[in-house]
Design a binder for these strands. Sequence first.
DNA 1: TTTAAACCTGCAAAAAAGTGCAATAAAATT
DNA 2: AATTTTATTGCACTTTTTTGCAGGTTTAAA
Lengths: 254, 254
Amino acid sequence: MHQVQTQMLKRERQAFIMKQVNLHNRVLSADLGMMLNVSEDTIRRDLNELAEIGELVKVHGGALSKSYHYDYAPNTTYALSEKTIIAQKAATLIEDGMYVMLGGGTTVRELVRILPHKLKATFFTISLTTALQLCDHPNIEVIFLGGTLVKNSQISVGGEVISRLNEISADLCILGTNSINTEGITDSDLEAVQVKKAMIRAAKRTAIVTISEKLNSAQRLRIGELNDLDFLVTELSPTDEQLTPYHNSGLIIL
Amino acid sequence: MHQVQTQMLKRERQAFIMKQVNLHNRVLSADLGMMLNVSEDTIRRDLNELAEIGELVKVHGGALSKSYHYDYAPNTTYALSEKTIIAQKAATLIEDGMYVMLGGGTTVRELVRILPHKLKATFFTISLTTALQLCDHPNIEVIFLGGTLVKNSQISVGGEVISRLNEISADLCILGTNSINTEGITDSDLEAVQVKKAMIRAAKRTAIVTISEKLNSAQRLRIGELNDLDFLVTELSPTDEQLTPYHNSGLIIL
DNA sequence: TTTAAACCTGCAAAAAAGTGCAATAAAATT
DNA sequence: AATTTTATTGCACTTTTTTGCAGGTTTAAA
């Protein structure tokens, strides 16, 4: 770790930071502070400025190169605060060493985002965006189940995925859903339904994560009944009366 | 730091400043004031004038040479203009109805971005980001070859991918590369090398897309020799002399 | 939960920059 | 050459920028 000249112009310093970021893909504020001989506050301010003009992605403790990081824009997610609560609760289901299967959607993505960085587990997914988010975690293994991609939901479907799923036995499956009522969960895309069915079959237990807004709605195609499922995670308190019909159907409410 | 003669004309002084800037890429107002024996106000005025006619870039505390690479423009990808040229040329290789295999990297991503929206073709890829980019095109079929994900490069690797690749015969494979020289193309990640080898085998013809900066460099692991390849696409003119060794090795230069 | 690191906010000191003005120097005019 | 005009320079002044630090808060990980 080498030092750099004293008395550096701000622009120079920021250029140096950008070089480091593009070279190593990630930098730590503490390291840069030492190398450039300025306080971490200064580095933080630099990183924030560079992030503001979109040169890099600021993260807790430092920054990441933009090209190697999937641009996750938390502010654009609908009902983020609810989804954060859901993510917190769902995360408690995941333990070290588990094999976990994940679907797509912003709620699942939020779950992945808040997973502890130390978690060591194996994740299977059919969603491109979930997979990219998983790539930010250093200690987990990510396996993408390939197939034909559905363009608007960016998940893979088709016989290939399903036959792969039939060979897998995971500890837990976590799915977002478009619609859930006391009859079960439903969707509108036939291919996606097939795959989600197979995912539920391939896991010992299944958790549904969804904002309460989607409770008591239905679409044309049935994915599964409530007794195919094990957990229901919403932003509501487990004792909320909106959830009692689901509790009575045998689901564990988080 | 040496002193300079007592009285100096403004034009002389500014010429001296430019010499310093071009020599050191940076100057401090305070230093110049000392060296030229004038007040910092004068120096500041000089720097502002020189900045106004575009001879240098004024920053807080001094000035920087115009050639100084503080110039991080809004482009998120490094060398975007070169990559756009490459993408345009590579796109001419793709025709309706083809089966095309794509690797990862920003050059390939740029290629996908500029593909005509009316193109009807089938694309296979191992790169999450390439796959996402492909999802923006309504008329193409995207098949992701799943496997274990490498977190840095966000591509899938492993036996699963390779055995799938062995079942495929594509018309064209387009790969970015980290390093190419007259011996062939090389990389540093063993798993990635295995997959890229299999991709080249699985396609009738292979095109390498790369900015010229990466020509004549090498890394530890060999992916393939030049006669495993068919096309080389850089931002240079096909007749550029840097490319003649590759042309002589039998590659078609675009 | 607890703890340590990282973060943000406001503040103050120092450096740098902008401003108006007067003194001086250079150029142009008579 | 003398005088007017114009440009340049330094100074005193205020404003802005940059930076580090103290505080309270948030986040990450044990």
